[in-house]
Design a binder for these strands. Structure first.
Ligand SMILES: [Zn+2]
Ligand SMILES: [Zn+2]
Ligand SMILES: [Zn+2]
Ligand SMILES: [Zn+2]
Lengths: 135, 135
DNA sequence: GATGGTAATGAGACTCAATCCCATCCTTGT
DNA sequence: ACAAGGATGGGATTGAGTCTCATTACCATC
């Protein structure tokens, strides 16, 4: 990720370093607040403004994806360069996020792009339901 | 819509009356702020709290659907009693919302429910792309 | 048509994620 | 090492949405 930003002519700084490294090590999405807390726990959290700046930058360069689950705060998750991605199911009982992927769903969206005759550059899919604990 | 709420044993009040009537007359989603402004323009806007209460109530009774486009505010749109629903594509150029429905997509989600072995109670789908004007 | 229990409403304080501003710090090319 | 411009921090600010509670309106009953 660092390389991509460097290639775009951007300088390197402590905030960028820490946010990127943290995000790159996560299996699933983190909110800006969670990132701040996690970094504060290490002793050196960047300012809030810097965290948002880095996240915006990552989304802009397709290095991260913004995930909204409807709880009023955005979450961010590393985007794999291969284009492979997953979607989320949010449990209405406990709020837990569960990741899944489904080729059938992706295929349906691909067909849709043709049917609508419009160029579709991305899709957000969120399922709501009950996780096994809450069912 | 009034009838459904009455059937649920709820009383009728001015705020409820005005918000429902406004929403029922809209072709597409409105934000709470837009609703407040529109009603204020008529001279009698309910309090902000009442607007949110009515909207929550409508969503709870499947009379309206919450639509999130990622601009940090929720929008609300009347939901038809037949259960038929549509999804939206948001144009990244002009922000315009375009509605569409697709049986293939619904089918894929139905299958997914089985595959994940979880009860799925709803789904939000948002496509991002370019509308014909902006393409 | 009056009464009373209870739901509904309004106004504003409040929360909290996200943004803005600007002085200061640091990276990087020379 | 130096300078220029990008990067950072922190604190003030915004704005959607929530909460509280006193007041008002609805409606079943008498
Ligand atoms: Zn994820
Ligand atoms: Zn997908
Ligand atoms: Zn719509
Ligand atoms: Zn659907």
């Amino acid at each position: 990720m660092h390389e991509v930003l460097a290639g775009a002519g951007l300088k390197r700084g402590g905030a960028r370093e820490r946010v990127i490294d943290l995000l790159a090590a996560q299996p699933c999405a983190l909110s800006a607040t969670e990132i701040e807390d996690a970094l504060r726990a290490t002793g050196r959290s960047p300012g809030r403004a810097s965290i948002y700046r880095v996240l915006d930058l990552l989304v802009e360069h397709d290095l991260a994806e913004r995930v909204e689950v409807g709880d009023g705060q955005a979450r961010f998750e590393r985007q794999h360069p291969s284009g492979e991605h997953h979607h989320h199911l949010v449990c209405e009982g406990c709020g837990r996020l569960i990741a899944f992927d489904d080729p059938g769903l992706e295929r349906a969206i691909g067909k849709l792009s043709d049917r609508l005759g419009m160029r579709i550059s991305g899709h957000d899919i969120l399922l709501r339901g009950a996780c096994e604990r809450c069912a």
